[in-house]
Amino acid sequence: MVEGKFSEIRGWAAFEPGIKVKPWSYRPRPLGDNDVEIKIEYSGICGSDLHTIKGEWGPPQLPAIVGHEIVGRVVAKGDGVAGLAEGDLVGVGAQVYACLKDSCETCSRGLDPHCPDMVFTYNDNYADGKQAQGGYSEAVRVDANYTFKIPAAIDPVHAPPLMCAGVTVFCPMLKHDIKQGDRVGIVGIGGLGHLAIQFASALGAHVTAFSHSPNKREECMALGATAFVDTSDEKQVEGARQSLTHLFVASNAPANQYNEFIKWMKIGGAIVMLAVPPGKMSFSASEFTGSEVSLSGSLVGGVKTLRKTLDFAAEHGIKPIIERFPMDQVNEALARVDSGRIRYRAVLENPRD
């Protein structure tokens, strides 16, 4: 069996619900035949990290090192790993394992995020019972199938948000076959939304950005939007009625706001939730039968979709707007993300040797 470079991995872990993390180290799982060990250079902060350590999605497994937007270099690999070499620049997203068997009902359909055996990057357990730990650390060991080469055209510091936020917005666009002529709306111009504008525009769609912050108009247009609606302006909102073939909701919009979203859709349009709204939704049947609008959600993209996301971003020059923080300033970065002041994704940087 190949030995890894790290017998202990140092990171920043949550020990109680909240947004504070502390230095902590753990002994990693043995490096399996199909595993790689990655020395982390950059780790993005995702809203899911905060939801997890704050306990908003249920009690977390503590101590927990979160972070599932990981970019670094391969420093060791198992004997069965092909296609990756030591020194390769790679990324890891929100998932670190699925069976990927042809006999698996979900994996065989390219839906490996729904595999019964899937393992999230953190706050989850492998089949052997060992807890998965994430990217706010110096290194990580994961299955090679969920380790992706970063294309040379992508600046490594801009790669982490593509591993989660990027694939989160691009995956449903592929499923809905977004193309030239489609009229796509993006609600919530933040960490997800500013990337969604870029991907939809690169696919050829007419993109309308919806935001209650009129000062984001110029930025949205620069990112590729062809129209902007200030949602605090009733006249502009009224003008958006029945204008969209697709709407991607990238904000935690209140559940009751979806009733308004339906009014923006053309007959037979599709609304896709990219974020989880608080509260329960309430609709009358006639809202759907009268409009023939569909409402769906999207989790994360699987192996094939993540590769497509990175390749497409490289080809079209898509990159997140980021703020950079040294890894030891992770608590300051978490506070800034939690306050909503980040523009638009935070990236933690480990010191270089």
Rank of each mutant, 00 (worst) to 15 (best):
A14I: 08
G18T: 10
G18C: 02
K22I: 09
K22M: 06
W24V: 08
W24M: 11
D33C: 04
K39M: 05
G47D: 04
S48I: 07
G55F: 03
G58Q: 06
P60Y: 11
P63K: 03
E69H: 05
V81E: 05
V81N: 14
V90Q: 06
Q95A: 06
K101I: 03
C104I: 05
C107F: 12
C115Y: 07
C115R: 09
P116V: 02
F120E: 12
T121D: 04
N125H: 12
A127S: 15
D128T: 07
K130D: 00
G135C: 14
S137C: 12
V142M: 10
A144Y: 13
A153H: 04
I154G: 00
V157Y: 01
A159Q: 04
F170E: 02
F170C: 00
C171R: 08
H176R: 15
R183W: 01
G185I: 10
I186P: 02
I186Y: 12
G190C: 05
L192P: 08
L195N: 03
A200S: 15
A205C: 13
H206N: 09
R217L: 09
A222C: 04
A225K: 05
F228L: 04
T231S: 15
Q242H: 13
Q242G: 14
H246R: 07
V249E: 04
N256S: 11
Y258L: 10
Y258I: 05
F261A: 03
W264A: 01
G268S: 03
A270L: 04
I271F: 10
L274W: 01
A275L: 08
V276S: 07
P277T: 08
M281S: 13
A285C: 12
G290F: 07
S296D: 10
S298Q: 06
G302W: 05
L306G: 00
K308N: 15
D311Q: 15
F312D: 03
A313D: 07
I321A: 11
R324N: 02
R324T: 12
M327I: 15
E332A: 05
A346R: 00
A346I: 04
N350C: 10
